[in-house]
Computed example of a mutant assay.
Amino acid sequence: MRYLMLVLSTPEDPELRPEDAEGAPPIEDWVEKYYGSGAAVLGDRLRPPGDAVGVRVRGGRTLVTDGPFSETKEAIGGFDVIDAPDLDTAITIASEHPMAHGGAIELRPFWPLDLEQPDQAATGGGA
């Protein structure tokens, strides 16, 4: 199963202690281990929230809003797509990421759209 791993900075986390971040493994080691094994398949850093743009369509009009969007200081700093056989493995991979020590990781399982299912009417499978 694939998971989106959101890499978050959490500067106002009351539980964050300096020694947590100091004990983080180097990002190069995490990348080598998980991208090298194929468990991580795509990832990158993201520009700061101030560079974000929101897009919504309301009443047939496209509305564009400059970031940042939330009142919180927590921000998505990057992402990785990982391929893991189960949630426990995904949690292990996430827990070894350096930002799990100095920030936070959010795991979101993919929810496939299943767009390739045949049309029942075309195959005679209608009600």
Score class of each variant (00 low, 15 high):
residue 42 L to H: 09
residue 39 A to N: 12
residue 95 S to D: 15
residue 68 P to I: 07
residue 96 E to L: 14
residue 105 I to G: 00
residue 104 A to I: 09
residue 68 P to V: 08
residue 40 A to I: 08
residue 78 G to A: 06
residue 34 Y to T: 01
residue 96 E to F: 08
residue 77 G to L: 07
residue 44 D to M: 13
residue 42 L to Q: 09
residue 31 V to I: 15
residue 68 P to L: 05
residue 24 A to K: 02
residue 80 D to P: 00
residue 76 I to C: 09
residue 35 Y to F: 15
residue 27 I to Q: 10
residue 69 F to V: 06
residue 94 A to S: 15
residue 93 I to M: 03
residue 27 I to D: 07
residue 36 G to H: 11
residue 32 E to H: 13
residue 44 D to W: 08
residue 25 P to W: 04
residue 60 G to A: 13
residue 85 P to K: 10
residue 24 A to R: 01
residue 61 R to T: 13
residue 32 E to R: 14
residue 81 V to D: 07
residue 51 D to F: 09
residue 86 D to Y: 07
residue 28 E to L: 10
residue 73 K to H: 14
residue 74 E to D: 15
residue 33 K to F: 04
residue 74 E to T: 13
residue 70 S to R: 15
residue 55 V to D: 04
residue 69 F to C: 07
residue 60 G to H: 08
residue 45 R to I: 11
residue 55 V to G: 05
residue 31 V to D: 05
residue 85 P to W: 07
residue 104 A to S: 14
residue 86 D to W: 07
residue 50 G to M: 02
residue 92 T to N: 08
residue 82 I to H: 00
residue 99 M to W: 14
residue 75 A to P: 00
residue 82 I to E: 00
residue 38 G to S: 11
residue 67 G to E: 01
residue 26 P to K: 06
residue 75 A to L: 04
residue 103 G to V: 04
residue 105 I to R: 01
residue 29 D to L: 06
residue 90 A to M: 03
residue 87 L to Q: 10
residue 94 A to H: 04
residue 58 R to W: 11
residue 37 S to E: 12
residue 70 S to E: 13
residue 39 A to I: 09
residue 99 M to D: 15
residue 39 A to Y: 03
residue 91 I to K: 10
residue 36 G to T: 12
residue 26 P to F: 04
residue 50 G to A: 11
residue 57 V to Q: 14
residue 91 I to T: 07
residue 25 P to V: 08
residue 56 R to S: 13
residue 25 P to C: 01
residue 38 G to E: 11
residue 96 E to A: 13
residue 24 A to L: 02
residue 65 T to N: 05
residue 99 M to R: 10
residue 100 A to E: 02
residue 98 P to F: 03
residue 67 G to W: 00
residue 62 T to S: 08
residue 52 A to H: 06
residue 80 D to V: 10
residue 84 A to M: 07
residue 82 I to Y: 00
residue 24 A to D: 01
residue 51 D to A: 15
residue 94 A to C: 11
residue 74 E to P: 02
residue 90 A to P: 03
residue 87 L to R: 10
residue 103 G to D: 01
residue 63 L to I: 15
residue 97 H to G: 04
residue 87 L to C: 11
residue 62 T to I: 13
residue 54 G to R: 13
residue 28 E to A: 15
residue 104 A to Q: 08
residue 101 H to S: 14
residue 74 E to W: 00
residue 88 D to W: 05
residue 96 E to N: 15
residue 87 L to S: 02
residue 35 Y to S: 05
residue 50 G to R: 07
residue 78 G to K: 01
residue 90 A to N: 02
residue 28 E to Q: 11
residue 64 V to D: 01
residue 59 G to I: 09
residue 66 D to H: 03
residue 100 A to N: 14
residue 57 V to S: 12
residue 78 G to Q: 02
residue 93 I to L: 06
residue 99 M to A: 11
residue 61 R to I: 08
residue 104 A to W: 03
residue 97 H to Q: 12
residue 49 P to A: 10
residue 54 G to S: 14
residue 41 V to T: 14
residue 85 P to M: 07
residue 26 P to Q: 02
residue 94 A to D: 07
residue 80 D to F: 08
residue 91 I to N: 00
residue 75 A to Q: 08
residue 91 I to M: 06
residue 55 V to W: 10
